[in-house]
Write a protein that binds this DNA or RNA. Sequence first.
DNA 1: GGGAAAGGCAACTTTTTGGTTGCCTTTCCA
DNA 2: TGGAAAGGCAACCAAAAAGTTGCCTTTCCC
Lengths: 112, 112
Amino acid sequence: MSNVDTRVAGRDAAALFAALGDPTRLSLLTALSDGRPSSISSLSGGTELTRQAVTKHLTVLERAGLVESIKVGRESHYSFRRDRIDIMRAYLDGVSRQWDDALERLRAFVER
Amino acid sequence: MSNVDTRVAGRDAAALFAALGDPTRLSLLTALSDGRPSSISSLSGGTELTRQAVTKHLTVLERAGLVESIKVGRESHYSFRRDRIDIMRAYLDGVSRQWDDALERLRAFVER
DNA sequence: GGGAAAGGCAACTTTTTGGTTGCCTTTCCA
DNA sequence: TGGAAAGGCAACCAAAAAGTTGCCTTTCCC
């Protein structure tokens, strides 16, 4: 049952982890997590990357549901979506808990 | 300062997230998180994958520090390393907290 | 109105990744 | 002691990812 849980959660989680598995995307997400929606240009300014490269990374993050975008005039404003982070946290918590339980069982066995 | 923190943590974290950004590796990690060290054959048995494919995934996980291996006779025993999970949790907690703080500041501003 | 800023779209190149097959070495155990 | 089990190593392949360049459209604002 908890086995099924982690497997189901894992399917969702893998895509999220993959989206974060790139230093550039991770820093984009960090930049957005301060709450200020940002345009593509402002996000690519200050980096070594071209605007198009940043666009691609933002698209990856958006498909994973980690950010969302709205058009404001000629700009696209990207913003952080906190809720998806919780899925990853839940997955990591599950793995950690399973590990802790395993250790506990081992301890109980040894001390028997 | 907390900005620097997330950036430093981010460098480590990206590699870890990347290692988890694959369904196969995620299920390998889940299998190992029950505390029982497993051989490559036992991990590849029951899956559609060849032994070599599993070996490669385990190598990725090991380079990321998420598992470790020891040789036992002719077998390689892989086991879960919980400590690295904490780095990812810390990163996600940091991002979430930054987001929560931003919301709080916004609320305070609006209610002023 | 017209130039500049913001960005979408598409083609293309280069690496990386996920996976395979084949072969060799080491270890186990009947 | 000799086959079978476990697995390392290397070459290879195909698809995906990361990034670039070029060009076109939309919007802003002087």
